[in-house]
């Protein structure tokens, strides 16, 4: 396996130029910021609503931008051409993820500033964001790879968006212990409860299980993305 920063940078530069001309992606970036502005006007005591702007930014920008960039490379057969160049799988994967990660991070920070969420423990919070970025960029890659077209990413991705961001609402809606239990294992739910613990001046002891949950999600989704990439990258 070769590794060249020059090639990774070339892919990132290309994606950046392309992104500036892609209105679909620009909307996916602006939408979470709009939601953050809206949510900041509604006063709520629901703890899971607190991290909603962050979760929305992670899912909509992280997963969807990555998914549509990946699906488009596949739909237009440009991924095939990249694979036929000296760029390795790893270089292509990293190149295609770095830009989405940076943009998502900017949108997350923007959402926090707009909605005025109070961040008590920057160190643990940064780890939580980093793990979330890995999870959602990987999920985005998976959605992009299993969709045949860019349009399909919205259809494939929508259930994921709903489950991950509105999980706690769903569990109160269905009033079933099994659903509530399953939803409590979602990384977004763990993110929310960790954030609440941190805001209640909790430390590592209070959030360690949440961090572990997110770490396992991160590892699992990277492995799954790599596996699906191996299977689906050359599809028409």
């Amino acid at each position: 396996m070769t590794f060249s920063m020059r090639r990774i940078r070339a892919i990132i530069t290309k994606d950046w130029k392309d992104l500036l001309k892609n209105s679909y992606i620009l909307v996916s970036i602006l939408l979470p910021l709009g939601f953050a502005a809206m949510l900041s006007r509604m006063s709520t005591d629901d703890s899971s609503m607190l991290s909603m702007p962050i979760n929305l930014a992670l899912v909509m920008t992280g997963a969807f931008v990555q998914a549509s960039m990946m699906a488009e490379e596949k739909e237009r057969s440009t991924l095939r051409v990249l694979l036929l160049s000296p760029a390795s799988t790893l270089e292509i994967m990293i190149g295609k993820s770095v830009l989405s990660a940076i943009i998502t991070l900017i949108v997350v920070i923007g959402s926090i500033l707009i909605s005025g969420i109070n961040i008590p423990e920057l160190f643990y919070f940064s780890i939580m964001i980093l793990l979330s970025l890995i999870i959602f960029i990987s999920l985005g890659t998976i959605i992009g790879l299993i969709s045949r077209t860019v349009m399909e990413t919205s259809i494939v991705g929508l259930p994921i968006l709903i489950i991950f961001t509105y999980g706690s609402m769903l569990s109160s809606m269905f009033n079933s212990p099994i659903i509530a239990e399953s939803i409590s294992y979602l990384p977004t739910e763990n993110f929310s409860s960790a954030l609440v613990s941190l805001q209640g001046s909790g430390g590592f002891a209070e959030i360690k299980w949440n961090l572990l949950n997110m770490l396992l999600w991160a590892i699992g989704s990277v492995i799954l993305a790599k596996f699906i990439y191996g299977k689906r990258r050359l599809d028409k």
């Binding site: 020059r6 090639r7 070339a10 290309k14 057969s77 095939r80 160049s85």
Partner: peptide, 24 residues
């Protein structure tokens, strides 16, 4: 290949620039 595999929104130059860098 049997389909162009070009980046539609990018210019001819930008398309080729990417591959210049990939091939050094």
């Amino acid at each position: 290949t049997d389909n162009s595999g070009l980046y539609d929104r990018l210019t001819i130059y930008d398309n080729l620039e990417l591959f210049c860098k990939l091939y050094n």
